[in-house]
């Protein structure tokens, strides 16, 4: 190898060392995924809409104004038209974005925390702990998820908070199983065996070694999980088991306006398109994350 080539290789290695933080690395790989970037933009767009809702509209999402009911889109002052009670649809959609995103995030955070905890316990301790936790997961997974959510809401009663709780509970096994299987493979790795050999405490092994090393699949699954959680919230709302009117949750809005579809199709089209776009955004972004972080899981 010539002197110059040798020098370039060394320089390249130096450069690599400087930028090689795992987050930067992830971002670099993620940036190459066109679809993931589109998904990211969709998510960002809706987050911006949701946060700036009070700035973007002067209407209230619940102010009834019967004289101006069923105004078509692009009417004066009503960009997306109005619904059966004369409420501005654009206002309701962007406040709905707040609700969907919040419920989606919170539900996933809830299931991730509990699922990860249970998964770590089951994977690390094995034996009867694993038996017990895995059987509970099996039983929960024996129910189609929306059905289990329906069961929980029937017990707790109808409200947006209860829908959130139901969705969080229903998705616990997804993350629990993921973490458990990851821990099972990690347990055989030398660094964990070494940690045990030097007498490190279980809690330290779990939180300092197992947890950080199981994060990648959780981040990927969590991103895709937000999409599922948003659809499930809307589904519960549509079935009359989620947010109560006048809360502008998208699924509840669809249920309210479905009888007017012939008269005012826009009241059905826009909430539905919103759900689909946000869910598409999270699906695209999640798929991209998976390809960037975990090439083995590539679909």
């Amino acid at each position: 190898m010539s002197q110059i080539q040798h020098q370039t290789v060394i320089n390249q290695m130096k450069m690599k060392e400087r930028v090689d933080s795992p987050w930067m690395d992830m971002w670099r790989r993620l940036r190459k995924q066109k679809l993931a970037m589109i998904g990211g933009f969709i998510i960002l767009f809706f987050i911006l809409l949701a946060f700036s809702a009070p700035l973007l509209t002067s209407y209230s999402y619940k102010a009834v104004e019967l004289p101006s009911r069923f105004l078509p889109p692009f009417s004066e002052g009503h960009f997306l038209g109005t619904d059966d009670l004369g409420r501005d649809l654009f206002t309701r959609i962007i406040y709905g974005a707040q609700i969907s995103l919040r419920v989606g995030f919170l539900a996933v955070i809830g299931s991730v925390i509990i699922g990860t905890f249970l998964g770590l316990l089951a994977g690390y301790y094995g034996k009867w702990v694993d038996m017990l936790i895995s059987r509970i997961f099996d039983i929960m997974l024996a129910f189609p998820s929306i059905l289990l959510a329906i069961a929980i809401v029937t017990i707790l009663g109808r409200s947006l908070t209860n829908a959130l709780i139901a969705i969080a509970i229903v998705n616990i096994p997804t993350y629990g199983r993921l973490v458990r299987s990851k821990v099972l493979t990690l347990k055989e790795e030398e660094f964990i065996i070494a940690a045990k050999a030097v007498g490190m405490k279980d809690s330290r092994i779990i939180y300092n070694h197992l947890l950080p090393n199981s994060m990648t699949p959780i981040i990927v699954q969590g991103t895709l999980g937000i999409a599922t959680a948003i659809i499930e919230t809307a589904a519960l709302g549509f079935l009359g088991l989620g947010a109560e009117p006048p809360i502008p949750e998208w699924g509840t809005m669809l249920a309210d306006s479905k009888d007017y579809i012939q008269l005012a199709p826009w009241t059905v089209i826009f909430p539905g398109v919103s759900i689909m776009l946000v869910v598409l955004g999270f699906n695209l972004f999640g798929d991209g994350l998976r390809d960037a972080l975990d090439p083995k899981m590539k679909l």
């Binding site: 539905g272 689909m276 598409l280």
Partner: peptide, 22 residues
């Protein structure tokens, strides 16, 4: 397929009814 995965079933149903039936 990507759009299909993200489709809320209940909304798709409503749209189908509106277009193909009504």
């Amino acid at each position: 397929a990507l759009i299909g995965v993200s489709m809320p079933v209940f909304w798709l149903g409503l749209m189908e009814q509106w277009v193909f039936a009504q």
